[in-house]
């Protein structure tokens, strides 16, 4: 009922007024899109801060958000190098995963036999929880850094491989016929048809792999524990927990989350920039 009444009122307005109303509604929508989640976060933090203050909870049990933020600054000299270590492992693993994943996916499309022989290994590596394999990897691989890299790579590798393989095989059959008709060789078919067709799939895989590489790096650091020479953020969390330095644990956690969020947004942006000209996923619906 209420929508009908509203419709009647809009019909009564002049065109210009309608346009202005639509514009205002869009503007309000844009503001609310940010304002809603931000104010909710602030509200939750306020309740948390108030609860801690009201109950007089000691900071070694639960620090308030203000103390956590302060710790982030006071402990920056310890946290920052650890952040760099974790990010370095994450991005190195991701880079190797991209090279390996895309390279193997290309090999798969060139030879059915390579795919049939190697795909089971990729699946095994994917379905076995990394936390269970990490201790073994740490034993067999001499360098802790290399072991951490390997762990992060294993989890980041699969989404890129499977998405890119799917993408390479998703080229329009009519276009494949067309390329064949004009005498395209394998390399041209790959370069001009299969790789561009696979791009949206690859970018989707990259978004997943970015987050997974970070998780893989953190998990591996935990498995390496204090015995490792690594001093990433997970190591800081472990170390702080032994010392009951709860505010620093929270501060490290925030840095990990922020890194994950930034990685996700960076790849979302990259994906948008690369696809905005042509792919449905990046286009606005025109109705």
């Amino acid at each position: 009922m209420s929508t009908m009444i509203e419709d009647d009122r809009i019909v009564g307005l002049q065109d210009e007024a309608i346009a202005r109303a639509a514009e205002a509604a869009e503007k309000r929508d844009r503001v609310l899109r940010w304002a809603m989640p931000v104010s909710l976060i602030i509200a939750v933090l306020a309740v948390w801060e108030f609860g801690v203050w009201y109950h007089g909870t000691p900071h070694y049990i639960l620090p308030g958000p203000w103390l956590v933020i302060k710790t982030l600054f006071t402990d920056w000299h310890t946290l920052y190098p650890s952040l760099l270590v974790t990010l370095q492992i994450t991005f190195s693993a991701l880079a190797i995963a991209i090279i390996g994943g895309v390279g193997l996916a290309v090999l798969f499309t060139l030879s059915k036999w390579v795919e049939l022989s190697l795909f089971p290994f990729a699946v095994i590596a994917q379905v076995t929880p990394i936390i269970a394999v990490a201790p073994l990897i740490l034993i067999y691989v001499d360098s802790t850094y290399a072991a951490l890299l390997l762990c992060a790579w294993i989890v980041a590798f699969f989404p890129i491989l499977s998405n890119t393989t799917l993408g390479l095989n998703s080229a329009d059959h009519n276009l494949v016929n067309l390329f064949q008709l004009y005498g395209a060789n394998r390399w041209q078919m790959l370069r001009y048809l299969r790789l561009p067709s696979a791009m949206p799939y690859f970018l989707g895989g990259l978004k997943i792999a970015g987050g997974l590489a970070l998780i893989g790096a953190i998990v591996a650091e935990f498995a390496a524990g204090t015995a490792g020479t690594g001093s990433g953020l997970a190591y800081r969390i472990l170390e702080a927990s032994y010392r009951l330095n709860i505010p620093r644990m929270f501060a490290s956690l925030i840095l990990i989350s922020l890194s994950g969020i930034l990685i996700f947004f960076a790849f979302t942006l990259l994906s948008h920039l690369m696809l905005r000209k042509w792919h449905e996923s990046a286009l606005k619906r025109e109705n």
């Binding site: 329009d172 008709l181 004009y182 005498g183 041209q188």
Partner: peptide, 25 residues
């Protein structure tokens, strides 16, 4: 050859789509 569907590469401009047969040569 003209297919029933236009069969164009969505990621390429009109120029690049028309250029394709020559590019493959």
């Amino acid at each position: 050859f003209v297919f029933q569907e236009p069969t164009l590469m969505p990621w390429a401009t009109v120029f690049d789509n028309v250029h394709l047969p020559l590019k493959l040569q």
